[in-house]
């Protein structure tokens, strides 16, 4: 077991930021912590890293209780923070070398690790640049390089793609998967469900300081009723009888908004073909058709009654 959190409680006055949080992370996982802003993800990470005091609970990393002076555990951890944490006065190379030097004292070894880290995140050409001269995407990459240069076994990434352009985001996500393939266990917090779905092998969904559901991407979607979402563009909606569609088996809801017909069906039954046949028989002219499997947002919506991005 890499991480074990038991009954963690953290209060800020009357506000309960973490409410008896329980988590377990296994070796080799990319573990996603998904939740809306304010759900307690970053607080949980800060408690995990012994930066924040907590009111109750136990935290173990590599089967050892975590505390500020647990240097042997800290050596194995890398942190990529939500906000870029680098020194503006130092160059790219110096920044990575400085933070790496807090873990690795051997200069020669460190030089090699810094080169590898720059290579890994693709900022070798900017080694003599100061952070102020880097674009937002490059700055994020530098932030990652500073957190992983010492080759940690456990990497904690707290929303590393916030305010990053799509190209850099993809590059970062690919990098995370490479780190995992190289043997690192990764905890990845985000409020972007697509990212979590894309890279995480196991996911915990958080709300109000609690884990409300956890499991693999597929297993989470299996715990909810919602199945596929069908969206059909109707060109002559006046001829449409919504009740006929509602009569199909496993239909949860049918909604016509303008020319857009949205049908939600429950899990396990695919209704797309029969519905299209019906529309054809009723001489309904159709435009674009989409059919989507349920998302983590549906999981969140069904459990909490609100959107993940609310």
């Amino acid at each position: 077991m890499v991480i074990k959190i038991k009954n963690l409680v953290k209060r800020y006055g009357d506000l309960i930021a973490l409410d008896h949080l329980n988590l377990e992370v296994q070796k080799g996982e990319i573990f996603g912590l998904l939740g809306p802003n304010g759900s307690g993800k970053t607080t949980a990470i800060n408690c995990l890293l012994s930066l924040l005091k907590y009111d109750k609970g136990e935290i173990e990393i590599y089967d050892t209780p975590m505390h500020p002076e647990a240097y042997e555990i800290k050596k194995r951890i890398g942190l990529v923070m939500q906000n870029v944490a680098v020194f503006n006065e130092l160059t790219v190379y110096e920044n990575i070398d400085y933070f790496c030097g807090l873990y690795i004292s051997d200069k020669q070894k460190r030089r090699q690790l810094v080169e590898e880290a720059m290579d890994f995140v693709g900022i070798k050409d900017f080694r003599k640049f100061t952070p102020k001269k880097l674009s937002g995407g490059l700055l994020r990459r530098l932030n990652i390089a500073c957190g992983i240069a010492h080759k940690p076994d456990l990497i904690i990434m707290d929303e590393p793609t916030v305010a990053v352009d799509p190209q850099s985001r993809n590059s970062i996500l690919e990098g995370i998967q490479k780190l995992n393939a190289a043997g690192a266990t990764i905890i990845y917090t985000s409020h972007y469900m697509e990212e979590v779905e894309q890279i995480c092998s196991r996911i915990a969904i958080m709300d109000k300081g609690k884990v409300i559901a956890s499991g693999s991407n597929d297993s989470l979607k299996e715990i909810i009723k919602t199945g596929e979402h069908i969206s059909i563009e109707i060109l002559n909606p006046q001829n449409l009888d919504l009740d006929e569609i509602s009569d199909f088996a496993n239909i949860l809801s049918v909604d016509l908004s303008g020319s857009q017909l949205t049908i939600k069906s429950s899990r396990g039954k695919n209704n797309l073909i029969p519905i299209l046949d019906l529309l054809k028989h009723r001489d309904i002219q159709i435009g674009k058709v989409f059919s989507e499997p349920p998302t983590l947002n549906d999981v969140f919506l069904e459990i909490t009654g609100k959107e993940l991005r609310d």
Binding site: S50, Y71, E72, K75, L79, M81, N83, A85, V86, L102
Partner: peptide, 21 residues
């Protein structure tokens, strides 16, 4: 400011390192 986790992000990064405060 640079070494305190509650004062700067750099301080937070320094604080999680295995370095004697």
């Amino acid at each position: 400011t640079t070494i305190q986790a509650d004062l700067s992000t750099e301080g937070a990064r320094v604080s999680v390192a295995p370095a004697n405060k």
